[in-house]
Design a binder for these strands. Sequence first.
RNA 1: GCGCCUGUAGCUCAGCUGGAUAGAGCAACGGACUUCUAAUCCGUAGGCCAGGGGUUCGAAUCCCUUCAGGCGCGCCA
Length: 568
Amino acid sequence: MLDIKRIVAKNISEQVSQLDIEQIYENLEYPPNAEMGDVALPCFKLSRILRKSPNQIAQELASSITPSQFIEKVEAVSGYLNFFINRPLFIEKVVDRIMVEQDKYGSSDIGKSRNIVIDYSAPNIAKPFHVGHLRSTVIGNSLRKIFEFMGYNCIGINYLGDWGTQFGKLITAYNLWGSKQAVEEKGIKELMRLYVKFHQEAEKNPSLEDEARSWFARMERGDKQATELWQWFKDISIKEFEKVYDLMDVDFDYYTGESFYNDKIEPIIEELKQKGLLIESQGALIVDLEQYDMPPCLILKKDGSTLYATRDIAAAIHRKREYGFDKCIYVTGASQSLHFQQWFKVIELMGYEWANDLIHVPFGIVSLGGEKLATRTGKVVLLEDIMSEAIKKTLEIIESKNPGLENKEDVARHMGVGAVIFSDLYSNRIKDVSFSWDEILNFDGETGPYVQYTHARACSVIRKSEETTVDDNNFNSRLLQTKEEYQLCKTLYEFPEKTRMALSQLEPSIITRYLVDLAQDFNRFYHEHPILVDDKELRKARLSLVKAAKITLANGLRLIGLKPLEKV
RNA sequence: GCGCCUGUAGCUCAGCUGGAUAGAGCAACGGACUUCUAAUCCGUAGGCCAGGGGUUCGAAUCCCUUCAGGCGCGCCA
């Protein structure tokens, strides 16, 4: 594998006995622009060790390093030692590697025989799927793809919000204002209406809250009437969620919601008691976390029913036994950070050393016109509506740009849905986002359609080239001398570095950003240099670059959960 | 009140474990399609990196502090 920093570091270490290769490697960086060189060593830190001025060190090293096959020249510029590499050789190595590795380019096997549980999406039963849930779904889905790309075995779990007092509320509302017919006809929309009405009425009549709690308590005792209603609501909801997941090409290995762990809680409570962690406080059972500067973790309410944390603890222990995970990752909103810290600590206090393998991956909230999204008040943008608008807009563009395209509907679906996913994965996950129709339906610039368009453009050139001759993959990289060609190649080279970063930071946006950079470099190259030229050698060389870009774009797109499109 | 997160161009955001003149896109304005898909490309304009201290040869980046916004903080999830 080609590692230009390593080559340079090795070269320097042969000249300076006081420094080992790793130290040098760590300090190497890429200069801000190509005229300065390809790899640089800032000599300021060395100044103290070597007791010379940075400039002097750079000068001396510059004159003592002899050019090699890979390093063409070395320059000292104001304290920096700048290396200029053999660009044709670099291009050849990078493109060859991509040609060989194909859809594995950027991947790794560091995760071999390791299991990762990823808990994502987790919508609440009886509530519509809106933009807020979208984030967990797309971030989790992308992380899963990234982990798999790095060799891990992933278990995707959709931890449905199918248990809790909210169902008491829903049952209460259904009994008071609902009808079987309305729910059957309107599905989740009717359930939401009932839920919203409950909260409106409960403001005037707080006793409704008590009734809701008692219905939930009945559910926990296995009461027939309560359970049947709950199961019915759940079936309706899952059916609707699956439509959304199909649309987005997202899937899960298990749909084990909170209710799944219901019968696994009792032993956990016993265990907590045995380990002396549970104490009674104001009628409830808690784990005190004061010495860890956290509020207590509530385990059982005074009416004996469970809480979110209780179920999370039971679920984690169950998952550890079941899947023997190396890491268990929870993709949920940042507002739940304290909750996760609390119950992670409880797991640790229970004596499980794998408490450190539990990871919360938080993300910022989605707001709408400055207001928080809330199902209770009905203030939501439904995912269904966003997707259909995006698809509609895409179809319109296709009709005007490329009306002869085959499979228009299918392309429009991938393009439109992809645009929404892309935009959600575009900035750092921790940032709050403000939903805007204008932004989500803008297909110019740093967007999913831009990257897809670029990929399709590359495919198109490759297709055209194959109409005349089938070129082999040998090419003369010395014919690729322009700055656009080199820049494109440099960016292609960075891909494996980016996938590693995305993995270690659990940050899909690193890939999304990268795709935009790569697409920009490709489009500049494409615009500036004709590819299907008469000169056979030049054509082969440029075409190789196009193929390498196409492969890398496709690999990146898959990592964020999009299907690379061949024609748009 | 305490804790966590965020603050970079009019808007949306990049900026790696500190490094060379702070980068994109959108919006605005001006250019480029008889030639491989113009959902593209090129150019112009736009910045006391929230304010103030400090550490350092060097700070958007690290530390302290103030301000602004968001999110949490016992029977919701």
